[in-house]
Design a protein around this nucleic acid. Structure first.
Lengths: 218, 218
DNA sequence: TGGTGTGAAACTTTTCACAGCT
DNA sequence: AGCTGTGAAAAGTTTCACACCA
């Protein structure tokens, strides 16, 4: 396994496996199997084995995987051995919630700054952070070596904030604004659109109702 | 196009097209093309045409799509002609932020209740809502005809809350807790894990660094 | 002329099934 | 005896390319 290309679908599942493995380690489980891990991650065992095989042959036939060793390997592959300073743009409800979210810093993603373009908000405190003006972004990114930017602004400001982030040197963006943002090729973007998630659920919910109607013979 | 099976990947993109179309309509754009829509949705035009073709043949060759008519068709397909009452479990930072989020109600997903198991929180107000005890869930779901449940609790409570939701009659769940939840087959679950999104970005960020090193000849 | 609708090709992801090792 | 690792098959998704038609 000397090739360094892990399928996207696998990359998206590795953090799920990692979380399950860490829980096992905390419960003093020393060894696990693809079946057990699959159960904890909500997938099937063939997928677990295939996914882990992209990292290398870290299991033992007839036995399974050493939990601690596998944690180490998944961490290394995901780049979690280093820490990733994060900047959040937009100090509305969501920005606040994310700035206070424990799950980020626990996993090495420390929020180092929160910026907003509303002068009334600048200077106020959110946890340990003081809200800074958007203009300070470039300076902060350089000083704190920010790698990842999170956009929590309204849709209308998302593109300009993204451009500012890119200009400041950020190469990875997590976009919560309900808007498509366009960035240069070397910048990675992932988007989370809360309303869209509900709409997708709505579609399947409606389908269930329609199918139930058909079954009844409507 | 009498077959009623739209690929999952397409379903996930329809809300994105819808948002772009609504913006066009608001800007008084009467007609659009797959290329224009693709640009606004951040995909390519072949994908737009293929996706829309699953809904039916609603375009006109040489001309494009009528924006208002297409909005209607996408809305109908997604089941957005009806409204979907939503219940949120967990009134922490995220639960608060979601309860106040305008984007939901704007799209027909009204938050009708917010429940929490912390007696200190029960009774306090969040916007127009009063936080209710978890025990009230069954009654609320029946009374308000809740279709969708959103889990914003800590990981440890996610499974029990999910079970409570299912017992109360909810068949669609959006899970923000960093935990895998197990539900009966007839229940749809989508999960949004904020820390996982950052970990995925971290992976690609790290890759860029490694590749850059290689290019320099390290 | 210009843009849709769609088969067919290319690619990605999932699942199967079993050889091979402990 | 049991569980990994992995080719090969199957399923799903994206892209291509062009016939067709307003």
């Amino acid at each position: 396994m000397t090739d360094r290309a892990i399928p996207e679908a696998t990359v998206a599942r590795l953090p799920v496996y990692l979380r399950a493995l860490v829980e096992m380690a905390e419960a003093s489980v020393g060894t696990t199997s693809s079946g057990e891990l699959a159960l904890a991650a909500g997938v099937n065992s063939a997928k677990v084995r295939k996914d882990l095989s992209y990292l290398g042959s870290y299991g033992t036939r007839g036995v399974g995987y050493d939990v601690a060793y596998l944690i180490h390997q998944v961490r290394r592959e995901l780049g979690l051995t280093q820490h990733w300073p994060v900047l959040i743009a937009g100090a509305g409800n969501l920005g606040h919630a994310l700035a206070n979210y424990k799950g980020f810093s626990e996993r090495g993603f420390g929020i180092v700054a929160l910026v907003d373009n509303d002068p009334a908000k600048v200077g106020t405190r959110v946890g340990r952070l003081r809200i800074e003006p958007v203009e300070a972004m470039e300076r902060i990114v350089r000083r704190e070596e920010v790698a990842i930017g999170v956009i929590c602004t309204p849709a209308g400001s998302a593109q300009s904030v993204a451009e500012r982030m890119v200009a400041a040197g950020i190469r990875s963006i997590l976009n919560f604004a309900p808007a498509v943002i366009v960035v240069p090729e070397h910048v990675s973007v992932r988007k989370v659109d809360l309303a869209i998630e509900l709409q997708i659920l709505g579609y399947y919910e409606q389908r269930k109702a329609v199918l139930a109607d058909l079954a009844v013979g409507h």
